[in-house]
Simulated scan of single mutants.
Amino acid sequence: DLAIHGKLVPQDSNDEPALNLLKRINPDFTPCDNGQYRNIPKNWCACKLVDICSFLSRGKSPKYSEDDKTYPVFAQKCNLKDGDVSLEQARFLDPSTINKWNEVYKLQTGDILVNSTGTGTVGRTRLFNTNCLGNYPFVVPDSHVSVVRVLKSICPQYIYAYISSDSIQQYMEKNLAGSTNQKELYIGVLENMQIFLPPLAEQQRIVARIEELFSTLDNIQKALEA
């Protein structure tokens, strides 16, 4: 929460302003503007999540195979409660349906995966890395998982930290649809999510600082368990 409000690492006036970065991505970009946005650091810019994504979509409803174990499907349960991702409990695509899945649906390192249905798991956010594939050629998401793939000029680890923050998790919780037993996060809620975007160099400094702090916390936890 400190990170996404510019309070975790100091600002550097020599960093290229985030607005310049967004203008390169889209020359017609217009920053969001209201009183709250004016409280962010000088070189930051307020935008919507959709403004910085190359792919932002729910997955598809797959046809599963009970016999062929070649092509796994990423489901809600693959976003582990402890913060990791795993394909150990994945089901598998019917090989005859592979041509129905465009290349864009194959998950990539840096994809941010958000559980989009299910009481108790909706909103759970994890960062994907192809290291979890093992010998599988690729993995695709089912319709209960949304994929947030940011543009190359945006740091995915920063956006992952942003979406994982308490304030954004609360935003998603407040905007769920559906009944008590089947809450749903519509893709429009993600598209319109406000993002406070720092300069790219500061995004990278924030991520490095977060990793440093969590490493320290892990060491403390291990020491307590010894």
Results as ranks from 00 to 15, higher is better:
L176V: 05
I195Y: 14
N192I: 02
E191H: 10
K183S: 04
L176D: 13
G178F: 13
L176Q: 15
L185D: 03
N181I: 10
K183T: 11
L200F: 11
Q182C: 05
T180P: 02
Y171M: 12
S179A: 13
L185I: 03
N181W: 09
G188M: 12
V189R: 00
Y186H: 13
M193H: 04
I187F: 09
K183P: 07
I187V: 14
L185Y: 13
M193A: 06
Q182S: 03
N175Y: 00
A177Q: 09
Q170Y: 15
A201M: 03
F196R: 00
Y186G: 05
K183L: 03
N175M: 10
E191L: 15
Y171N: 05
I187W: 08
A201P: 00
F196N: 01
P198Q: 03
N192R: 06
A177W: 08
I195G: 00
E173D: 13
T180S: 09
E202W: 15
N181H: 13
L176W: 09
K183D: 07
N181L: 07
N175W: 13
N181D: 15
M172S: 01
V189Q: 00
M193G: 02
Y186L: 09
A201W: 05
I195Q: 00
N181T: 09
Q194F: 07
F196D: 00
L197Y: 08
L200M: 08
N192Y: 04
Q194M: 12
E184P: 04
L185V: 07
G178T: 10
L185N: 04
Q170I: 06
P199E: 00
N192A: 10
E202K: 10
V189D: 02
E184H: 15
A201H: 05
M172E: 06
K183W: 12
S179C: 03
N181Y: 15
K183E: 03
M193Q: 11
N181M: 02
Q194G: 02
A201I: 07
P198C: 11
F196G: 02
N175R: 08
V189K: 01
Q194R: 09
L176T: 10
K174M: 01
G188I: 07
A201F: 12
G188W: 08
T180C: 03
E202R: 04
M193V: 15
M193I: 04
F196M: 09
E173T: 11
L200V: 10
L176A: 11
I195L: 09
I187S: 05
E191N: 09
